[in-house]
Structure formats: C-alpha cells, structure tokens
Computed example of a mutant assay.
Amino acid sequence: MTLSHFTTSDGLRLAYDDRGTGLPLLCLPGLTRNMDDFDTLLEPLAGRCRLIRMDYRGRGRSDYDPDFNNYNLLREAHDVVELLDHLGLAQVAILGTSRGGLIAMALAAGFPQRLTGVILNDIGPVVGTAGLARIMEYVGKTPPQPDLDTLADAMVRQTTGEFPGVTAQVWHRHVAHWFAERPEGGLSLRYDPALHKALLAQAATGALQDMWVFFDALKAFPLAVIRGANSDILSAETLAEMRRRHPVMLVAEIADRGHVPFLDEPEALALIGAFLDTLPPLPQGSPA
C-alpha cells in the first residue's frame, strides 16, 4: 500500500491511498470501516480508473478526534472536500459504502460542483431500524474472541441468514480489516470507540433525520445502487422509492449478501464498470 496523509483544517492527519490514472473514483467506507474494505477493487479496477481511498477521522490509520462530536456526516463531508483540495481535484465520482453513501448524499446537497457521479453500496435515505439497532449493539465494543481465526469462525455461525455460504477464510480476510490482534492476546478496534458516544448524541438530537432531501440532490448525477438482497439497512421498499425518484439509476441486487456486499461479487463489479462508462471524460488539463 502507498499510504499518504493530509492535514485537515482543524489539524488532524487523515490517511488516504491514491493509485492509478484516469477518471477519479473516491471510495468512502462504512461507519466503523476503513479503506481496506476496498482492497477487493484494486485488481478489478486497475487500469480502469484512478482509485482513491480514505480513512475518516477516528478510523483506520487516521488520527482520532479529541472531540467525538466531530464524528458527524457534515464534518466528514468537509474532510472529503479538503482531501480533494489537497489532491488538486475539482471533481470526483464517489463509491460510498453505508456511511460513505450518506456522506456522498451530503456532498451532493452541499458541494454538488465537486461530484461527477455516485455509487451507493447498500445505503439509501432511510436506514432500516432493525439494522440501526444491530449496529448500535456492536459499535465501540471489542469482540470477545481471542483472535481473528476464532472471530472468523463466529462470523460464519452468526451470519448464515444474511451471508449464507461465506467461508471462515473469506470472513478472516474481512475481519482483519476491522480489528487487530493484540500481542498479549485478544482483539482491538481499528477505530475510535468514542464513535458510539457520537452516535448516541446525534440520535438524541435527531440530526439529519430527513435524508430524502439529500438523496434528491443526486438527481443531477449519474447514480448507481448496490443492495444486498438480505440487507436490514436498505429495504426493498426504500430502493423502490429511490428508483421512482431517480428512474435512470443503475441497480444491482446481490443474492446471499446482507449489509454490506463485499464488492467482489460479479454483479457488483459489473455495475461499477457500467457506472464508470456513464461518467463524463476528464476535461483536458485535469490531473489524472
């Protein structure tokens, strides 16, 4: 990995990875996730686009914020804009997984001039209540398993309804992105546990409850949506309303996947390729 950092306007060092040439595609991960979740795209998209990945504040290899209240969509959207400024990019397409898709919607509403298109990975303007409750149960908590192998085995048992057929070997590859093994034994989070406090504080204020306004801002752009057929975050009903409001958006529903698809599925890769074909070419003189 060619890891780089930039410094935000409030002094945090955030990590990013920038590789390839051509149309820039910025990958934004889920709530507790980091850029490693997009490792599955490095080979399939090599030579296809300029692939940029970032770790939000408090996640992965980025600095933790001393004020957990800054773990919010609007601050994180501003961090994205500051990364684009740092890279000298006037515009970028976004592939947003879960939280990353919400940030993309916020950018479409607040900074539309910086976007060329958006892919939403298993997220929409309505977040399923069952899925949200499930997320609140684990955010900020260290898994009880002693190592990644044991955690991967547990994932096989715990996700048979949402991810049937996914092996322990596959789960090991993914959980190694989200947790680290301690030298003395046990696991540690690869994000700031204070993120749980931020979610509780934001839930209490009801911040950003109506995301349909943000979604409607995407009408101006090429849009694609990937949905896990077993998702408890993006429902079939919400997806149907999204299609009604944005009739030309591309859609792929991934069988045997919950929240979120891994993005190595053939249907997901085909949709990403089709989406890239809809993007306008780079203006002459733009950095590739």
Rank of each mutant, 00 (worst) to 15 (best):
T2L: 13
L3V: 10
S4R: 12
S4I: 01
H5F: 14
T7D: 05
D10Q: 07
R13S: 13
G20S: 12
P24R: 10
C27L: 11
L28M: 07
P29C: 08
L31T: 11
T32C: 10
N34D: 05
N34Y: 01
F38E: 00
D39S: 10
L41H: 01
E43A: 14
P44L: 11
P44Q: 12
L45P: 09
A46P: 06
C49P: 09
R50C: 14
I52S: 02
R53T: 14
M54E: 00
D55T: 05
D55N: 12
Y56D: 02
R57N: 12
G60K: 03
G60H: 08
D63L: 08
D63E: 12
F68Y: 15
N70K: 10
Y71L: 10
Y71G: 05
N72E: 10
V80E: 00
V81T: 10
E82T: 07
D85R: 09
H86Y: 11
H86S: 11
H86T: 08
L87P: 10
G88H: 06
G88V: 05
L89A: 05
A90S: 13
Q91I: 09
A93N: 01
L95H: 02
L95P: 04
T97H: 03
T97G: 01
S98A: 12
R99F: 00
R99S: 00
R99V: 03
G100F: 02
I103P: 03
A104N: 05
A104H: 07
A106N: 05
L107P: 06
A108Y: 06
R114W: 07
G117L: 12
I119K: 01
L120F: 01
D122M: 12
D122F: 08
P125A: 12
V126F: 08
G128N: 05
A133L: 12
A133Q: 15
R134A: 15
R134K: 15
E137C: 09
E137T: 15
Y138H: 14
V139C: 03
V139K: 03
K141Q: 14
K141S: 15
T142V: 15
T142L: 12
P143N: 11
P144D: 11
D147K: 06
D147W: 11
T150M: 04
L151C: 03
G161A: 14
P164G: 13
A168P: 09
V170G: 01
W171R: 02
R173P: 02
W178V: 03
F179L: 05
R182C: 11
P183Q: 09
P183E: 14
S188H: 07
L189R: 07
L189F: 13
L189T: 07
Y191I: 03
D192H: 06
P193N: 12
L195N: 07
K197M: 13
L199I: 14
T205F: 01
G206H: 04
Q209D: 10
W212Q: 01
V213I: 09
A217L: 11
K219G: 15
K219N: 13
K219H: 13
L223F: 02
L223E: 07
R227T: 03
R227H: 04
R227I: 10
G228D: 07
A229Y: 04
S231G: 08
E237P: 00
M242S: 02
R243S: 11
R245L: 04
M249V: 02
E253S: 14
G258F: 13
V260L: 09
L269M: 02
L271E: 04
L271Q: 03
L271C: 10
L276Q: 05
Q284R: 09
G285M: 04
G285V: 06
P287A: 13
